[in-house]
């Protein structure tokens, strides 16, 4: 009996030892991956504080003290031709906030319309929305641009904002969410209490869908903030003051200030840091959202 238990104990100890070794190896591997993930961002932040000569002399892992000088030249006369951070923030925020609001509101409205009401084209319209999800943006862009220039909307923000109303992926997500957690009895109850249909949507459905709306709002915000393709396509010949932040970063590349490394690093950092801060605050939501099959660009 005692022999049995010792054999069992040995096997168990063996098993746990193996698991411990595996866990330790994996931990080291994860740490390596973490370093790879953070290395470019860390170097970006460090180099944003170093002078151009320091940077061209080699790599350093410790920040320096020249942040303010770099800021001065990044907002100075040479950069001003292509890069104006404050205007960039403003323009990106205008486009991003409005399109994010439109995406979330109208997607919720569309999903609600399909989910709550019975009408003839209900299933057809939902199928169309699912099909539309598959068409990539790049395929339609030639026709999109030629249409926009025909109705004189190029070089304005409208073609960047209004299409946000029709976001099939978000509608699909909202509908799935409603199916699982929006009972139709509530709508009946609201009707009996004399609530109008639109008001039912605004003051009952939207508060109930807050989690789904939050996740999709975050993703819509990130996607729109990071978008370079569409703005660069539509805003063909506009002043630097009207460009979005990613467009300004792109403009830096073809300018001759690219040799002022410290200031360029700072300019890039200024475009990335706001979104990193937002990510750190909202990361739990975001990870949960991706796990729900949220988005894939």
């Amino acid at each position: 009996m005692s022999k049995m238990s010792s054999v069992y104990g040995e096997a168990k100890a063996n098993y746990t030892a193996k698991l411990k070794i595996k866990s330790a190896i994996l931990f080291v591997w994860f740490v390596i991956l973490t370093i790879i993930c953070l290395f470019p961002i860390y170097i970006l932040l460090v180099n944003a504080t170093r002078t151009t000569t320091d940077i061209s002399n080699g790599i350093s892992f410790l920040p320096s003290t020249h942040l303010f000088e770099n800021y001065k030249s990044a907002t100075g006369a040479d950069f001003r031709l292509n890069y104006r951070a404050l205007y960039g923030y403003r323009n990106s925020l205008i486009i991003t906030c409005t399109s994010c609001f439109l995406t979330v509101f109208f997607s919720a409205l569309t999903a609600y319309g399909i989910h709550v009401y019975d009408f003839k084209l209900k299933e057809t319209s939902y199928t169309i929305i699912l099909l539309v999800m598959m068409v990539p943006m790049q395929v339609t862009s030639a026709g999109f641009l030629s249409f926009m220039s025909k109705i004189h909307l190029t070089n304005t923000y409208w073609p960047l904002i209004i299409p946000a109303v029709a976001a099939p992926g978000v509608v699909y997500f909202m509908r799935s969410y409603m199916k699982s957690s929006f009972p139709l009895d509530i709508v009946e109850a609201a009707r009996i209490d004399g609530c109008s249909e639109f008001r039912t949507f605004v003051s009952i459905a939207i508060p109930m869908m807050k989690p789904a709306i939050a996740v999709q709002a975050i993703f819509a915000f990130i996607a729109s903030w990071n978008n370079f393709y569409t703005p660069n396509m539509i805003l063909i010949s506009v002043d630097t003051k009207k460009k979005t932040l990613p467009m300004m970063i792109n403009a830096l590349q073809s300018s001759d200030v690219l040799n002022d490394y410290g200031a360029v690093y700072l300019a890039i950092a200024m475009s990335i840091v706001p979104i990193i801060i937002a990510y750190v605050l909202l990361s739990r939501f975001i990870i949960a959202g991706v796990a729900l099959g949220g988005v894939k660009e």
Partner: peptide
């Protein structure tokens, strides 16, 4: 959280960052 971080960065900025 760290491994997902690169995904939310602005692709345009990332490209220019790697050029540097």
């Amino acid at each position: 959280i760290v491994m997902y971080l690169p995904n939310i960065l602005t692709a345009a900025s990332v490209a220019v960052l790697f050029v540097q």
